[in-house]
């Protein structure tokens, strides 16, 4: 995201905030390490007079994270972020929130395509969904309290890509895809490049509103396995979670609780609203799967790409921050 924005000469300054160092080379972005609840954000906003906050830190899967931490990150983090954005005398005018289509749940009563205003049918059983719904409620309150803000909420379908680790990408990499026997749900994916481009699109053009973001089309889970060259690992329809437990502990599969209803009923979201704002996807749902499968094939053949940018980054850091560099001479 930051890389995409750096390419725009109209953006004067980019400030990154996160708990980990960025994993990609960033030329102009300044990065600040913060705790996971963004408690420091208020001061940063005041100090830097930013006008846009892009909130991409929400957890959208519950693997390896306790429910308390999940709550801290998603709900409290968003609370602090919105509080900082809406503080008196704020310079912020735009907030972009990256949410997930998990807010729709998955149940047998669902329509084939969820529109942004379609309500959810499934009872909220998992803590992940509960936290995401709570976050969206916070955002809704924020919009009501601060109507002058441009607020965009992007609900992303399952993200696939080599740079992102989700239960599904992990399963696809291991070529072992859990499924529930007797069910072959239709699912939707979005490629990580499209995720970044969608965030960039609404940020750059300041488009307010709630938008579904997912690649075109739905495909059956079995077809996902076939495109990715993965084997299906059938779990019994009754209590699949406890059956999967030993395999999860062995690290053979990942099967977070929010996947269970998805693997029965699937989910599809209508993305026409975002497309009408002028956004063009580069990948369909099936295309996202294929692109990841090809990247995985490459990785199997030549091993992981070694990060080659560390050196340049260090040099860049030196130019930016070292007192030895004479400012104003070169650029």
């Amino acid at each position: 995201m930051a890389q995409a924005l750096e390419a725009d000469p109209n953006v004067e300054m980019i400030l990154g905030l996160g708990t980990d160092e960025p994993k990609v080379p960033l030329e102009r972005t300044e990065f600040v390490r913060a705790d996971q609840t963004y408690s420091i954000l208020n001061r940063i906003v005041r100090a830097t007079q930013v006008d846009t906050i892009v909130h991409t830190f929400l957890k959208t899967n519950s693997v390896g994270i306790s429910s308390r931490v999940l709550h801290e990150i998603n709900v409290i983090g968003t609370l602090n972020l919105l509080a900082a954005a809406g503080a008196p005398g704020t310079s912020v005018r735009q907030v972009v929130v990256k949410s997930s289509t998990h807010v729709y749940g998955a149940s047998e009563k669902d329509p084939t395509w969820f529109r942004e205003e379609t309500g959810r049918n499934a009872p909220v059983r998992t803590r992940l969904e509960r936290s995401l719904i709570e976050v969206e409620a916070l955002v809704r309150d924020f919009i009501m309290d601060n109507p002058q803000f441009v607020v965009s909420v992007l609900r992303f379908a399952h993200v696939l890509g080599t740079d992102i680790e989700t239960p599904i990408t992990a399963d696809l990499r291991r070529r072992l895809l859990p499924c529930i026997a007797g069910f072959d749900p239709l699912v939707q994916f979005v490629e990580e490049d499209d995720v970044v481009r969608a965030l960039e699109h609404v940020t750059r053009h300041r488009i307010p509103g709630i938008f579904n973001v997912a690649g075109a089309g739905k495909l059956p889970w079995s077809e996902v396995a076939s495109i990715a060259g993965a084997f299906l690992f059938p779990l019994p329809p009754i209590n699949p979670r406890s059956f999967a437990r030993p395999f999860r502990l062995l690290g053979l599969i990942q099967f977070p609780v929010e996947m269970e209803s998805l693997l029965r009923f699937g989910r599809g979201v209508d993305t026409s609203r975002l497309i009408e704002t002028g956004f063009a996807y580069r990948y369909s749902s099936a295309g996202a799967v294929e692109s990841l499968a090809q990247a995985n094939n490459l990785r199997r053949a030549v091993g992981d790409n070694q990060p080659t940018y560390r050196y340049e980054q260090d040099v860049e850091q030196f130019f930016q921050h070292s007192p030895a560099v004479v400012r104003g001479v070169d650029g």
């Binding site: 995201m1 930051a2 924005l5 725009d8 109209n10 953006v11 004067e12 300054m13 980019i14 400030l15 990154g16 905030l17 996160g18 972005t29 963004y38 954000l41 830097t48 007079q49 930013v50 006008d51 846009t52 906050i53 892009v54 909130h55 991409t56 830190f57 972020l81 310079s91 005018r93 972009v96 441009v150 940020t203 750059r204 053009h205 300041r206 488009i207 307010p208 704002t277």
Partner: peptide, 24 residues
């Protein structure tokens, strides 16, 4: 105009505020 954000972000800034147009 200064722009920035959490984790990343931006400001193609204010075209809409200054000209009073709708965001689109």
């Amino acid at each position: 105009i200064k722009g920035s954000s959490s984790r990343s972000s931006s400001a193609s800034a204010s075209a809409e505020a200054r000209s009073g147009r709708t965001p689109s």
